[in-house]
Design a protein around this nucleic acid. Structure first.
Lengths: 121, 121
DNA sequence: TAATCAGTTCGACAATACTAGAAATGTTAA
DNA sequence: TTAACATTTCTAGTATTGTCGAACTGATTA
């Protein structure tokens, strides 16, 4: 069992909640900008192949060399919301976005929901 | 000065934070499903032309006939985040989504951000 | 103008979330 | 096998957020 997502059923509220914190949004945008490739298992789990380490992220987001517990906490929130995946590579953990989450969110805003619902207005 | 948006500079973090609460997401989805038409001022302000009242929303979301202060609170949060607009119509307030916010969010997830950023990974 | 309706604001309380430092874990290098 | 490195977990403190009931405001109706 991989450490990557630990959540296969994507919950849109949890995603928004996770992205609603400025630090987490910065992390997420950084990871998106990296655009590192991922492997998708048959289970649906996503594993990063390459990508920035937690230290890289911390450095980029806080300017701090030492990894803070705060960054670790926010990465966990993003991971539990299904937005990112992480995997150990030697001493480091490498990170990536979960492309399925992006697709879900793009679809959520991109499609016009059933207009003219009769039980309102 | 209209009561509608009171915020012309859309902040993506604030939007995610607002949508990260289950009650507010339900309200937002209900308003989206209604798909009521809005007027867009030259200032950029959005005014609903028709749409459900606060009472309608409360009834749909909580099943409660009386409008609760909780629903009023959540509507305010959505309004301050720029996601919805409200306007008085007689005794009632009518509500609608802000289409500009939807467009912004669709664009945010729909576009691939600059891939291959050199200062990472 | 008084009463009523529709919604908002206020104040207090409980629950949740973020931060920081210290201790713990897992991995590699000496 | 000890030391160092990278990161997580734990604990405690503080701040923010959501909920509830009561009081308030604005608009309409009697």
């Amino acid at each position: 069992m991989s450490i990557t997502l630990q959540m296969n059923q994507l919950d849109i509220t949890a995603m928004f909640k996770a992205l609603g914190d400025p630090t987490r949004l910065r992390i997420f945008e950084f990871l998106r900008a990296c655009g590192a490739p991922v492997a998708v298992e048959e289970s649906g789990d996503v594993r990063p192949l390459v990508g920035p380490t937690v230290g890289d992220i911390c450095c980029h987001v806080t300017g701090n060399e030492r990894v803070t517990s705060s960054i670790s906490f926010h990465l966990k929130e993003l991971r539990l919301a299904g937005l990112i995946a992480m995997e150990r590579r030697g001493k480091n953990m490498i990170c990536s976005v979960n492309p399925e989450a992006i697709n879900l969110l793009a679809q959520y805003f991109g499609t016009t929901p059933s207009v003219g619902n009769s039980d309102c207005c």
